[in-house]
Design a protein around this nucleic acid. Structure first.
Lengths: 193, 193
DNA sequence: CGGTTTTGTTAACTTAAGTGAACGTTATAC
DNA sequence: GTATAACGTTCACTTAAGTTAACAAAACCG
């Protein structure tokens, strides 16, 4: 799994042996069981998460009801808002599959940025790219109907439709589970016709 | 207006005189007239924009119809997706007010990052913060109804409701202008009751 | 100015999502 | 292995958003 990480990083910057060793020497890989909660609403954490294998879900609990808003899978990472603004987290994070997760903390980050400034460049570049991608995701969400959003998901992330429970997928799409069922039913009828 | 920028930067990192001069020596401020288009769909640009005064709108044209998705106002910046992935832009950018805009390009950025690595730190920190804020915006959008989204906007960005044309605000809220009118009418009736 | 375009609202009608409940089907736990 | 809970779908009904059209007000332009 360390190789997966190093391959991923190497896609963006070149690493020499020293740098590879520096990464490997960090003891950052964790096995997380399905269902385990990584972050609770109200908690102030300083950990960042990066998925090597498996899936992290972010969700809110509103009036006792879970609202899933994001799923992070292989080679995707999430730095909770509370890490950066030092306020209680607004959402929960849990693993919805048995997962291998890289868990980082600010001290570790500072240390590696200091030793290898190149990593800070990498993080700038990655977060800028993610930021613009995220902006486009939000744009697409705004200009699409629920049915279009489901179709886009089928197109762009068919794996999510397969591996995520449908009621969690529904709130990810900004609708209720019943509406997702209806959309699927509607699409089936149209396909048959 | 240079002072505004330097004040803004100073909120995040300390600047010495050399660094301040380096910023001032860049000739980056532009006066843009209301209506002027900064970026067209299909265009590959390498410019980044940062609003000193005024407002930049991002919008798509779908079936001949404009769909506004974001508004950038004082001390907010936007790096179009096309700058980072070198593909044609999916959206337009224009100014909807007479504005003063800082326009950057990658060469300028590279130069200043090289001379003052501190600026790259700043950019990493800012884009990480923006990224997590953006994620929460998307979350809130997903878990809210159109009416709640309008109320949130009134709460968090009342200035936008005032300065943005309502039909542009509607698509920003993910709805049609008629629905926004109805929501306002509904809220008025409830307030009177 | 006066004419035109853009903007904002209202209305009538259509369509789709929200709601609450029922029910079969998986999972899960003991 | 069976009781229990969680999940996914369907249904009937309610509510709100989309659509099309009309019209008044405001902004813009020659």
């Amino acid at each position: 799994m360390k190789n997966l990480l190093i391959e991923y990083i190497s896609e963006h910057i070149e690493l020499n042996e020293d740098e590879k060793n520096a990464i490997e020497s960090l003891n950052i890989f964790h096995s997380i069981k399905k269902g385990e909660v990584l972050l609770k609403q109200g908690e102030i954490s300083h950990k960042g998460y990066f998925v090597i294998k498996g899936c992290i879900r972010s969700y809110y609990i509103i009036n006792g009801e879970e609202k899933s808003t994001a799923f992070y899978t292989e080679l995707e990472g999430v730095t909770p808002h509370c890490v950066l603004n030092n306020k209680p987290s607004e959402y929960y994070l849990n693993c919805i599959e048995d997962s291998i997760i890289l868990i980082s903390n600010p001290e570790m980050e500072a240390e590696i940025f200091q030793k290898f400034p190149k990593f800070e460049s990498l993080c700038r570049i990655l977060s800028e790219k993610l930021l613009t991608k995220n902006q486009i995701d939000l744009d697409k969400f705004k200009i699409s109907s629920p049915e279009q959003r489901y179709k886009n998901l089928l197109e762009n992330r068919p794996d999510l439709v397969q591996r995520i429970p449908q009621h969690q997928l529904a709130s990810f799409l900004g609708i209720k589970p019943q509406s997702l069922s209806r959309i699927k039913a509607r699409m089936l009828v149209k396909k048959i016709k």
